[in-house]
Amino acid sequence: MSVTKIAAVKEGGTGAAPVEFTNSLGMPLREGLHFVHMTLIGAGIRDRIRLGASGKIISGADIATALALGADWCNAARGFMFAVGCIQARACHTNRCPTGVATQDAARQRGLVVEDKYKRVANFHRNTLHGFAEMLGAMGLDDPSQIRPDTLHIRATDPTSILHHRLKPGHLFEKDCPVAFADPWSLARVDSFRPADMAEA
């Protein structure tokens, strides 16, 4: 019996994250999700792992794009934070959030009027799902599970982008595997996340 594992691919996070981290480290969600999805296919284990995607998913189009790139489900926070009143003051870690969204300070929490905000959050959620359903209908689909990589045309202006590559099951073990996947695969280690030259030390 195969065991289903769950993995998450994400981008974003708290507005208090250092700018160097949010702007320079890791991969954007689209490329990262596609990379993980294709790597799992190339390794022949995609059917045993479920992928969740999170990061700047706000609209129905964002949901459709993430599903087309390989996500089995999406998590969203940013749009809901905006709906509840977040103004991206980037003070989440200071306990001085001016809108009362991210603080334990009772005086500041009074700025968030739950009786008003919950309606906005509910409306945002309902309208997002409605927009997503309209997109499915426009694509001639009955269910989100029918979305495939070729359902949407994902724009990638860089001709070397990994978004242009599609792997087949077991492709990582073949000589014609694209370099964008073969090189990281050859450097991967079971016992360490450290770079290969450092792991040997």
Rank of each mutant, 00 (worst) to 15 (best):
V3K: 11
A156S: 08
A66C: 10
R155D: 10
I147E: 02
A102Q: 08
D176T: 10
R110Q: 15
H34C: 05
D158E: 07
G85D: 03
F21R: 09
S145Y: 08
I87W: 04
L29S: 03
D150A: 09
E20N: 11
R148T: 15
T22Y: 07
D116E: 15
V19T: 11
M1L: 12
N95F: 03
A53L: 01
Q109G: 09
A133L: 09
A107H: 13
R108W: 06
A201Q: 14
E134H: 13
H93F: 13
Q88F: 09
D191Q: 10
D105W: 04
I49Q: 00
M27E: 10
V113N: 12
K5T: 14
A66V: 04
G137E: 11
N23P: 06
V36A: 13
R48P: 08
A138T: 15
M38A: 10
Q104D: 13
R126I: 07
R126E: 10
V19S: 09
V190S: 12
E31C: 05
I58D: 00
E174V: 04
Q109F: 00
S2R: 10
F193D: 13
R48M: 11
G137M: 09
G60P: 00
G42W: 01
L152I: 05
G32R: 06
G60F: 02
L129P: 02
A138S: 15
L67I: 05
K175Q: 15
A102N: 11
D62Q: 03
E31R: 07
K175I: 15
V114Q: 08
R120K: 11
V114T: 14
A182F: 05
G70L: 02
Q109S: 07
F173R: 08
M38I: 04
I6P: 03
A8M: 13
D158H: 03
L163R: 06
A7K: 12
R90E: 10
V121S: 01
E174T: 14
S145W: 07
L136M: 14
A196M: 12
L67A: 01
L67Y: 02
W73D: 02
G60R: 01
A76F: 07
T22A: 12
W185K: 00
T4D: 10
S186Q: 11
F35I: 03
H164C: 04
E115S: 14
I162L: 13
T4K: 11
L40D: 02
F132V: 05
A91W: 07
H37G: 02
D62K: 01
F181I: 01
D105M: 04
G137Y: 07
V36L: 15
S186L: 06
K117S: 05
E20G: 09
K5M: 13
E20V: 14
F124K: 05
D176V: 05
I57F: 04
M198P: 00
R78V: 08
